[in-house]
Design a protein around this nucleic acid. Structure first.
Lengths: 183, 183
DNA sequence: GCATGCATGTAAGGAGTTACATGATTCA
DNA sequence: TGAATCATGTAACTCCTTACATGCATGC
């Protein structure tokens, strides 16, 4: 079928229960954003395309005078979601500016390298804190896997933070030696 | 100065030694692509912009009848590189389709979830193999940090593969229990 | 002679973000 | 009354990839 990646996020959320585009966006911001983002500029046009393709159905559900459209999966949408889940995942991309800087850290001096590592560590620890704040909510959900994924995030960022600390002390040890040699 | 992200990759490589756009691209493909990609469509226009901004200088260095331009950092380019390395890194983005599927795995059944975990594990192990093949070359480099970063990649993907295995067996244990209950 | 690698580039298009515009409702 | 939240949407823009075009050099 060749849906956009955002299309599958939408199908995934609608697989749980019917909801509006706005609600999908706020759930994305609270959950999948750590490994898969989506903006209004993608979500609303994609909702229209999915409806045209017959994978979802919209129903007007105004709240007072505030217009609102709630979407649900059709039978075809359920099939599409299941097929996608059964396919081998392909996208696995990382964009890590700290790692890029570390890669070029020979041009930064050993003080510079230490700062890059410290900043990277700090950043991962912030992510750990953010995810730990979310964790209880994920655990309370009727669905089981959101919590599994949150735990992945916590453990992964903690691992990365620990790696930074470990490498920083290895580097500091090596530097002391180098200083003795050059002294 | 507000360079594009590709601009800094170029400055980083030129910080080691002068080289052509083609060589930058092939080095990116062999090294930074695991956490920072760049295509010809970005590199060649960016080389021109960097030259216009006075951060790099191109010199014609044909090989026989084959035209070739080798770029080097100017003093301003060195400064720009050092300033960028000293700035706090900002971009840290992950796009992991397997994690997205796992997040929605409640719609996939426990067999489906097990398959997602197995596929994710397999993928991380492939990355480990790819990076292990590169590692000796990185270690042999005069620069020290490329090797540090390759080790990060190997250890990180190995950690992720192990996590998948651990969670898969937790899930399998839980499923046996659930089957006993429903039997 | 042909495949592979070196080398430079562009055009088209897809993906995604940001900013903006609009307007209702809720709650302090 | 004003801020925050709910709700939908678009326009402009950036970033980036893919595919293509060109042509020389090297080694089998």
């Amino acid at each position: 079928m060749g849906l956009s990646s955002t299309g599958y996020v939408i199908l995934g959320f609608l697989g749980r229960r019917p909801m509006s585009g706005y609600e999908i966006k706020s759930l994305v911001d609270k959950s999948t954003r750590f490994f898969w983002t989506a903006s209004y500029g993608q979500i609303y046009p994609e909702l229209r395309r999915l409806a045209e393709a017959g994978l979802i159905e919209g129903e007007a559900r105004p709240q007072g005078g505030r217009r609102r459209t709630v979407y649900r999966l059709t039978a075809a949408g359920h099939r599409e979601l299941r097929d996608w889940l059964a396919d081998d995942p392909h996208v696995l991309e990382l964009r890590d500016e700290a790692l890029l800087k570390l890669f070029f850290a020979d041009s930064a001096g050993h003080q510079g390298a230490a700062e890059i590592l410290a900043a990277k560590r700090e950043r991962h620890l912030e992510e750990v804190e953010t995810l730990k704040a979310i964790e209880p909510k994920a655990r309370a959900l009727p669905a089981r896997f959101p919590h599994v994924v949150v735990r992945y995030g916590i453990e992964c960022h903690q691992w990365a933070a620990d790696w930074c600390e470990r490498v920083a002390s290895e580097l500091a040890g090596g530097e002391e030696e180098a200083e003795r040699r050059s002294a």
